[in-house]
Nucleic acid binder design. Structure first.
Lengths: 337, 337
DNA sequence: GGTTAGCACTTAGGTATGTCGAGTGCTAAC
DNA sequence: GTTAGCACTCGACATACCTAAGTGCTAACC
């Protein structure tokens, strides 16, 4: 029993199963792939593969389907990168032209990726590390409610309503704005927390409490801002591949809707900052995704923000991985300098 | 054959069917509801109702289920408003306290509504008609790309990247900003289009082209901005009530994802600006929603923005309508003055 | 006229049964 | 290590049958 052939058999099983979504048997295997041996030999190989936990049989006299572990081996060692088709390249190119708002770019990107892969696509908002303070705005909405807006020179705009503990007249708010802006304009967002303290300290004591509240708000804006949001598209693709989620797509939809779950999953996945990372079935930390796989990678200057695809474990990994990687590269380029 | 009893029979059929999701027959009907007549009489009534197209039988020897027309009559004439439970009132109250950002309010609201109704909830961003210009910001991102931000005194913040046709130095952009802001601060957003022309006209001729581009951008920000966006929650509820969508929930998810479809639907529905409007099954202009109903109403000062719920035609209309109305009132109050 | 009882008729759905085919595991021979 | 052959297992499918629910209709009833 040759080891290379065994891997070849696993590859064939994965490919056939992904293609036909039906358990694949020894006979069909030798017919479709020209392995130079008989079905009996393949049966022996398959028994070995089953012993190793790489494939499994749904019932006694059915063919085999890959296990999560089998997919894992396939992804890690066997699969070859599948280049994108010309049409796909063209679709990405076409998208590049209509570049507009950041929101717009991400929206288009995620739709494209969903369409390319026929799956659910997810894009995390990028966090722009090199950003500096461009403008700060305070707007008094109600007696103690101030809308604060932080604009970075990268185009990032964040807003939040802040409760201040004291009544301030309109012009006092304007003065605070001037004070903050004068001191902080050009400050890198990463340094904002330290510098904010100095600004607060240099305020009139009377206005210290309000300034403190505003500073905390700005700090939150700079830090926790948009990189904890995401956009997605293609949920309808889940319904089409209904068969692939034996139980129900309910838990999957729940996971997608609880963005926190998805974001944590995405950030935990990417140990390898360059290549595409795959999380398969029960490898996912969230139970609702036990029958799903996520293919993701980073993009942007630091590859910190993630873009990915979610689909059934029975997924065309090579193609999906190629699409995710291509789209991530494109995103990096369009958002780059 | 008495007309009032016929309506009573329809009411009973709708209620039973919504409850049991199974076709309801004449015998079960007389048992569950104490109509003072025999099953044979009910059969006659049901035959009449079927002739009028209000109910239908899935097959010869099954009970009847309501048609879209039947639901329509039920909603319009029969159903009584079902008051919310104390627990539900409490849930809404609790939400009222953590009011924060507008984004945050809408997000919480839509989640709450989804949970209350066990359905998909949708909220359209409000357009704030009385808004005035609070601040305008231009940020030069790249040689000919300007990020423009429009802040209204209502807390609305809109941004967009604008291509200007000429190279401008940083300080020229800043000067333009000052010029725009000085002339337009306090202008109601509705008057922005006219006033912008005057501002452009008063610019240095050299900078006219850039000013023109920026003006168009601002106009777009003021007009087409957020009221064409929406938030939704509870898509997982679709999967749970899988049975209710015989074909697939795919088309429904598609409709939800194509926000344009939903937004048009919502805006077309609300002829009646005060009450809750219902669109049932094939009444929906979009084919994918042929098996779905939408319950919606307006909220906010002019009731122009919409909040609603989408579910299967087999839906508990009285409860859903009550929830939508309550949430809309709550939203109006929290966003009001 | 509206209401009721009774009855023949229709049909979905469940269950028992048989057949077919795909697929496996094992053994013995190559 | 590979192959052919064979007995065995089970799911999928088809058939037949039965039951329960429900209808429509007719004739009697108030």
């Amino acid at each position: 029993m040759s080891e290379p052939r065994k891997l070849e058999v696993l590859r064939a099983i994965v490919e056939d199963y992904v293609h036909s979504r039906e358990p694949v048997g020894s006979k069909a295997l030798v017919e479709r792939h020209h392995l130079g041996v008989s079905s009996a030999t393949i049966r022996n190989d398959m028994a070995a593969l089953e012993d190793e936990g790489l494939i499994t049989a749904p019932h006694t006299s059915a063919g085999r389907i890959p296990t999560d572990k089998g997919y894992r081996l396939f992804v890690d060692q066997i699969s070859a990168v599948k280049p994108l088709s010309a049409a796909e390249r063209r679709a990405i190119q076409a998208l590049l032209e209509g570049s507009d708002d950041l929101d717009d770019v991400l929206d288009r990107t995620v739709r494209l990726l969903a369409q390319l892969t026929n799956q659910v696509a997810v894009v995390q908002y990028p966090l722009l590390g090199r950003a500096r303070v461009r403008h700060i705005e305070f707007v008094l909405l109600a007696p103690r409610k101030v809308l604060s807006v932080l604009i970075a020179d990268t185009g990032k705009v964040e807003q939040r309503i802040i409760d201040i503990a004291q009544d301030l007249p309109d012009d006092a708010v304007a003065e605070l704005r001037g004070h903050f802006l004068g001191s902080l304009s050009g400050t890198p967002l990463t340094l904002l927390p330290q510098n904010l303290q100095a600004v607060v300290a240099s305020c009139q004591p009377l206005r210290r409490p309000a300034a403190q509240a505003l500073a905390r708000g700005l700090e939150a804006l700079a830090a926790s801002s948009r990189e904890d949001r995401m956009v997605m598209a293609g949920t309808a693709n889940l319904a089409r591949s209904n068969v692939d989620f034996p139980l129900s797509i309910g838990p999957v939809l729940e996971a997608l809707e609880e963005q926190v779950v998805m974001l944590r999953l995405l950030s935990e996945m990417a140990q390898d900052p360059r290549g595409v990372t795959v999380s398969i079935g029960r490898e996912n930390p969230y139970d609702g995704l036990a029958e799903a796989s996520v293919v993701a990678t980073g993009y942007g200057p630091d590859a910190t923000a993630k873009v990915g695809v979610l689909g059934p474990t029975r997924m065309d990994y090579p193609t999906t991985m190629a699409a995710v990687r291509a789209v991530a590269r494109y995103l990096s380029r369009i958002l780059g300098p």
